[in-house]
Design a protein around this nucleic acid. Structure first.
Length: 515
RNA sequence: GGCCCGUUCGUCUAGGGGUUAGGACGCGGGAUUUUCAUUCCUGAAACAGGGGUUCGAUUCCCCUACGGGCUGCCA
C-alpha cells in the first residue's frame, strides 16, 4: 500500500489476563506495519473494566512484547507525547469528551438499572423474541433523558441517581466504509444500539475510550481483530458525532482452533498439548501455570515468523523470515480475509528452521544455561559441540539435555531390542581390543578416531554394520544420534574407553536375558 | 433468531475469466547418511453446491449450505 505520511498505530490490549496468541498477532501486525512505513507503534492499556482487571496482566503484556522484540515507541513504560497511556489514568479526558457529546445532543443519560435491563431482556426472551436493542424505538420506553419529562430527568440527575451516558444512534441510516482487508463493508444504523459510553462508575466503555484515544493519539490505522468489525459502525458514528476524521480500519481474520470449531482457545490447546500464550502465565486464582511458547522452547523469532504467516503471506515462496525481513516485506494488502486454523506441527517446523540458523556458539551458551538450571555444570566447549550436533535433531533447544543426556552423564538405558539384533557375544574380544586401541590413541579428534576405528574394522574384517551400532549402543544407549566419530570425540577418550568396556560387561547378560 | 464477515489440497496459502491450479507443513516413496536428523528428488492430495453472465468460469454476480464474529454498564 502507499506509504501514508506518518503512520501511527497502536496495540490496545485489556489487562484481564494473559495475552492470547491472537492478540500477539494483532500486536505483531501493528508493529510490522509501523516499521514498514517508518511510523510509530504505541501501546495503550485499556483498563476501563475494573471488574475484570487483573493486576499482573500489564506486566505480562510488557514482558511478552519485550521477549518478542516488539518494543512500543510510546506506551506506559516509555511514555510519550500523549501520556498517560493507561486509560484508567485518563478519566478526565473521557469525561470531557462525553460532555461534548451530551452538549451536542449526540448522547443522553439513561437511568435504567442493570436489574431493570436484565428484566427487560428476559421478558423479551420469555416471549420467544431475540434480545431487544436499546435503540431509537425502544429508548422511548425506557428511562432516560429522552423519554422522561425534563423535570424528572433533572430531579434524578440532581439526586445523583445512577446513570449511564448512551450514544443517540440515528435510525435507519446506512453506514458504509472501506476496510483495508475486507473492502467495502456496510451496516444499517438500526442494527446498532444506543451503546453505553460512560458507565455508572464514571469510567468510559471501550468504544468511547478507544475512539477518543485513537483520535487524540493521532492513530492513522486501526488494525485489530475481526471481533471488532461489528462495532466499527458505532465507532464511525462516534467519530462523526465528535466531528473527527476516522482512521483507516483493518480488521484481521481470527485464528481458529486446529480442528473443530471456533476461535483458538486455551481449552482446545490444552487438550492438544500446545500453548496459546506467548509466555507462561501463573493464574492468580488457581496458581496453575498456563503454558507459553517461550517456556515450551520456541525461539522468539520463530513465534514472530509463524504468527506473521497466520493470515498474511508475502506473495513469494519464501516462508522463513527474520523479524527484520518481515519489517521490510509486511503490508496490509496481503492480509487474508478468512480465519486461519492454527497448526502446531507447522509451528514447530518454523521453530526448527529458526533453530538451524542459529550459531553453535550461541546455542551452546544457551544449552549450558539449561544444564545449569538442571543442576549440572557443563563446560562451554562441550555444550557448543553438543548443540551443533543436536540442533538438526530437535525442534526446540529444550529437548537437547534429554536428547543428548549421554553427553552429560552415564547412559541411562541400553536399547536392548536393537542390541540383540546388532550384538554378537562372540565379538566381545574384538570390541575389547577396540577399547584398547582407542585408549592408546594420542589424538582423539573425530578424524583420528574415525581412522582408528576403520583400521580396526579392517584388521578384524568387520564392516560398519557390525561395529558402529554396537559402539553407539555402548556409548549412548541408542543407535540414533549424531555422527558416531563426532560424538566420540566430544565424549572424550577416557569416557569412550570406560563406557565401552563397561557396556561390554553388560551386553552378554542383556543379550542372554532375551534368549 | 437478527446483522456482518468468510469459503482453493487434511492444514497454512499463491493464483485468477482460457493454467498440467503453484508453494509450504504433514503424509507416502526414493537418494545421500554407519544410525537418527538434515539435505535432495518424488508421489498422493483442493477451487463447498446450484443457478446465472460469458465463446469460456475456480476466478465476476445471485442463491443455498457450511464456518466465524457481533448481538453486555466486557474488551
Amino acid at each position: 500500500m502507499e506509504a501514508a505520511p506518518n503512520v501511527r498505530v497502536r496495540f490496545a490490549p485489556s489487562p484481564t489476563g494473559p495475552l492470547h496468541i491472537g492478540g500477539v498477532r494483532t500486536a505483531l501486525y501493528n508493529w510490522l506495519f509501523a516499521r514498514r512505513h517508518g511510523g510509530q507503534f504505541l501501546l495503550r492499556i485499556e483498563d476501563t473494566d475494573q471488574k475484570r482487571y487483573v493486576p499482573a496482566a500489564e506486566a505480562y503484556i510488557l514482558e511478552a512484547l519485550a521477549w518478542l522484540g516488539m518494543t512500543p515507541d510510546e506506551g506506559p513504560q516509555q511514555g510519550g507525547p500523549h501520556a498517560p497511556y493507561r486509560q484508567s489514568e485518563r478519566r478526565d479526558i473521557y469525561a470531557e469528551a462525553a460532555k461534548q457529546l451530551l452538549d451536542a445532543g449526540h448522547a443522553y443519560w439513561a437511568f435504567d438499572t442493570e436489574a431493570e435491563l436484565d428484566a427487560w431482556r428476559a421478558k423479551a426472551e420469555s416471549q420467544g423474541n431475540p434480545p431487544p436493542k436499546y435503540d431509537a424505538v425502544e429508548r422511548m420506553r425506557l428511562r432516560n433523558t429522552l423519554s422522561l419529562p425534563p423535570e424528572e430527568s433533572g430531579r434524578l440527575i440532581a439526586e445523583g441517581a445512577p446513570k449511564v451516558l448512551r450514544l443517540k444512534v440515528p435510525e435507519n441510516e446506512d453506514i458504509a466504509f472501506t476496510d483495508v482487508v475486507r473492502g467495502a463493508v456496510s451496516f444499517n444504523s438500526s442494527e446498532v444500539d444506543d451503546k453505553v459510553l460512560l458507565k455508572a462508575d464514571g469510567l468510559p466503555t471501550y468504544h468511547l475510550a478507544n475512539v477518543v484515544d485513537d483520535h487524540l493519539m493521532g492513530i492513522t490505522h486501526v488494525i485489530r481483530g475481526e471481533e471488532w468489525l461489528s462495532s466499527c459502525p458505532l465507532h464511525l458514528l462516534l467519530y462523526r458525532a465528535f466531528g473527527w476524521t476516522p482512521p483507516t480500519f483493518a480488521h484481521l481474520p481470527l485464528i481458529l482452533n486446529p480442528n473443530g470449531k471456533g476461535k483458538l482457545s486455551k481449552r482446545t490447546a490444552d487438550k492438544l498439548g500446545f500453548p496459546v500464550f506467548p509466555i507462561d502465565w501463573t493464574d492468580p486464582e488457581s496458581q496453575a501455570i498456563w503454558p507459553g511458547f517461550r517456556e515450551y522452547g520456541f525461539e522468539a523469532s520463530a513465534v514472530i515468523n509463524l504468527l506473521a504467516f497466520l493470515g498474511w503471506n508475502p506473495g513469494t515462496e519464501q516462508e522463513i523470515f527474520t523479524a527484520d525481513a518481515l519489517k521490510a516485506a509486511f503490508d496490509l494488502d496481503r492480509v487474508g480475509k478468512a480465519g486461519a486454523r492454527f497448526d502446531f506441527e507447522k509451528a514447530t517446523w518454523f521453530n526448527q528452521e529458526h533453530l538451524k540458523q542459529r550459531g553453535d556458539a550461541e546455542l551452546g551458551a544457551e544449552l549450558q544455561g539449561l544444564m545449569a538450571d538442571g543442576g549440572q555444570s557443563v563446560d562451554r566447549d562441550t555444550c557448543v559441540a553438543v548443540a551443533g550436533m543436536l540442533k538438526e535433531r530437535v525442534q526446540v533447544v529444550r529437548e537437547m539435555p534429554e536428547k543428548g543426556h549421554y553427553f552429560f552423564g552415564p547412559v541411562q538405558a541400553y536399547d536392548e531390542k536393537t542390541l540383540r539384533k546388532k550384538y554378537n557375544p562372540e565379538r566381545r574380544p574384538a570390541f575389547e581390543r577396540l577399547a584398547s586401541r582407542l585408549e592408546a590413541l594420542a589424538d582423539f579428534s573425530a578424524p583420528a578416531v574415525e581412522a582408528e576405528v576403520k583400521a580396526f574394522m579392517e584388521d578384524e574384517s568387520l564392516g560398519f554394520g557390525a561395529v558402529l551400532p554396537v559402539l553407539r549402543l555402548a556409548l549412548a544407549g541408542t543407535t540414533q544420534g549424531p555422527p558416531a566419530f563426532d560424538m566420540m570425540s566430544t565424549l572424550g577418550q577416557s569416557t569412550v574407553v570406560q563406557r565401552l568396556r563397561e557396556a561390554l560387561t553388560h551386553f552378554d547378560a542383556l543379550v542372554q536375558n532375551a534368549g
